[in-house]
């Protein structure tokens, strides 16, 4: 029916797999970027608009990466950002999951907390970053607080929805066979809510990464956000792209790790649930 499954003797099967096409697409894109940049340097516009102040070629990015790596700068900044991420994110898990759970099982708690939660969830919490700097000063703690604010709401809301959507008949079966409330909790509610909670974590990672970066832009002595701002103020775009590459790599790695965790914790979670969970994820 479609072109990709048609027999084509000239191109072997492994070259036609979607992974190969993806890899080729990325490589060709990078080559085009490099050629485009090379072409630009030969035009008068390059000097006129000082394009090298905001655009770097892939090769320059690789070189800058090497320099920052050798000087130890990259490691220092990444480590600082990573610490902030870990503190803020752990706090978000510790706070978000219990509150989400309480809101799901206790009606009054839900009624009282809901207006605050949905209002703060809809606010771009990074807007609080400058105020948090005024309140708590510079350093790891206030930055972690910004990360916490960014990450806690997706976790909380997904825990809430996950527990709310625990399948009633599963609970009834366990009850009918004489299961205690604790057994209902550990054998049904927790496992059935796990995919939704992990989806919340996945969503929270993205928000947390943005929060780390924005918090560091304002005031800090280290961190990837600081590095990016420092060099962009000096019109050196190379380190900016290095920072983005590092953070994308981190984002993709944590995404894969959470996917693995999901497969390990809830292996029954299948594609048929995907659409519903996707809905949750974006809720």
């Amino acid at each position: 029916m479609n072109a990709a499954t048609k027999k084509d003797p000239l191109v072997p099967a492994w070259l036609r797999s979607s992974r190969m096409i993806a890899a080729c697409s990325v490589i060709i894109g990078i080559v085009i970027w490099q050629l485009f940049y090379e072409g630009l340097t030969r035009t008068p516009y390059f000097r006129e608009y000082s394009i090298n102040h905001f655009l770097a070629s892939p090769w320059q990015v690789v070189q800058t990466f090497g320099e920052l790596y050798r000087s130890g700068e990259l490691f220092r900044h990444s480590y600082f950002s990573f610490l902030e991420f870990v503190y803020g994110f752990s706090l978000a898990i510790v706070v978000g999951i219990p509150i989400g759970f309480a809101m799901a099982i206790h009606r009054k708690t839900n009624y009282y907390l809901d207006p605050w939660v949905s209002c703060i969830y809809a606010t771009p919490t990074v807007a609080l970053a400058p105020i948090i700097m005024v309140w708590f000063g510079l350093g790891i703690f206030p930055n972690s607080l910004v990360v916490f604010l960014g990450a806690v709401f997706p976790i909380l809301l997904n825990t809430y929805t996950g527990i709310k959507s625990v399948r009633e008949n599963l609970v009834n079966v366990v009850r009918a066979f004489g299961g205690s409330p604790l057994q209902v909790f550990f054998k049904v509610m927790i496992p059935d809510a796990t995919p939704a909670i992990i989806t919340g974590l996945r969503l929270a990672v993205g928000r947390a990464v943005i929060s780390v970066v924005v918090a560091e832009l304002f005031g800090s002595e280290a961190g990837l956000g600081f590095m990016v701002y420092f060099y962009s103020q000096r019109f050196l775009p190379g380190p900016v792209f290095v920072g983005i590459v590092v953070l994308v790599a981190f984002g993709i790695l944590s995404f894969l790790a959470l996917e693995k965790l999901q497969g390990w914790l809830s292996p029954w979670y299948t594609y048929q649930l995907q659409r519903q969970i996707h809905r949750l994820e974006t809720e």
Binding site: H53, F54, V214, I244, L247
Partner: peptide, 15 residues
Amino acid sequence: YNAPIILLAPLFITA
């Protein structure tokens, strides 16, 4: 989609 595009903000402002 996964990149913190916010980091590009200073470059966009330069450009």
